[in-house]
Simulated assay, not measured.
Amino acid sequence: MKTESPQHLGKIPETMLITLWAKAEERNYKQPFLTDTKAQEIISQIDYDFSKFKKSKFSQAGVCLRASLFDKETSSFLAQHPDAIVIQLGAGLDARYERLGCPSVTHWYDLDLPEAINLRKKFFQENEQHSFIPLSLFDTQWIETVKAHQKPILILIEGVLMYFDRNDVKTFFKTLCKELDEATILFDMLAYSLVGHAKNHDSLGSMQKEQRPEFKWSELNSLNLEEWNNKIHIEKEYFMSDYERGRYPFIFRILYKIPYFYKRFNQRVIRLRIA
């Protein structure tokens, strides 16, 4: 029975429903990028027209591929730092903590705007090692919370930064550099060609114009971030078309062989170190 309505969500928080749908849909593939039984459970309870995304095959694959790369990198970090502090900014309804087997870290925080956390609490339970923070990622209170543990810090930012202006993103990273001595950050970089073109995106384009957020930020060269502060170091960069296993549309698989297209039309997952 569909008992929960997300009608109160703002533009950016509503995008969590796209990623929720994408992960639930992944069950239909013989070799899925990930298995997310929580997404399947949640989607059956939310009163929302998910059918409008049914033609969004490209972004459905992209969401799950991106999440699988985040999962892989998170698992690797926790293998090296089992006592870590993990904070997921813009967590929405993501079940990464559950997908990774509820790891016994020092603490795992999921942060999002209050309206998103209110919905999240309908489906997820907090415990002694896992709690929710109802704040904007630009509210520096969360930085003090993670610093207080004095443990290795992993910051996850998936499907979020693309909706903010370059100056806001730059200020955000500078703040992290100022407030944190060390941290590892995983985030995704929007395909450079999509900035200003959310209406052409196969899933966002299906949202009502007045409710659709715009894509505002990407960098053609990820190393540009190292110019923002000398504590920023790009450690790893995944160009997602290298990992798509034939799931992307055929024409795009051909076009990605062209260096110009590969660089400008590829989404990336980046591991960044502050030190």
Rank of each mutant, 00 (worst) to 15 (best):
L34P: 00
V105R: 02
D83E: 15
A84I: 06
L93N: 09
E115D: 15
K57A: 08
P152R: 14
E210P: 04
I258C: 11
Q88V: 06
R253W: 05
Y260A: 08
S203I: 10
K54G: 03
D188G: 02
F33D: 01
I87L: 06
G196I: 06
R273Q: 06
A84P: 07
E144C: 02
F215I: 09
W21V: 07
M1R: 13
M207A: 06
G196K: 00
K236G: 09
S218P: 11
I155H: 00
T3A: 09
M240L: 15
L111E: 13
H8L: 13
I153W: 14
E182M: 11
R264V: 01
A191H: 01
E227D: 15
F252E: 15
F252V: 08
F138M: 06
R212L: 05
E144S: 11
N200V: 01
N224I: 03
S68Q: 09
I12T: 12
T15W: 03
R271A: 08
L194E: 08
K11P: 08
K122P: 03
Q40W: 04
Y262P: 09
F77S: 02
I117G: 10
V63N: 06
N200F: 03
D181H: 14
E219Q: 13
L223Q: 05
R253Y: 04
I42V: 00
G101K: 05
V105K: 09
R27F: 12
L111N: 00
T140P: 07
R212P: 02
A67M: 10
E179S: 11
S76M: 09
F215C: 12
G159T: 02
R27H: 14
V195W: 01
I117S: 10
S59F: 12
T184A: 00
P114G: 13
N230A: 08
P103M: 01
I117H: 10
L154S: 13
R247S: 14
F164V: 07
S75F: 07
A198H: 05
K236T: 01
A116K: 02
I46L: 03
Q7A: 11
K178W: 02
S222W: 07
F173M: 13
L156D: 12
P6H: 01
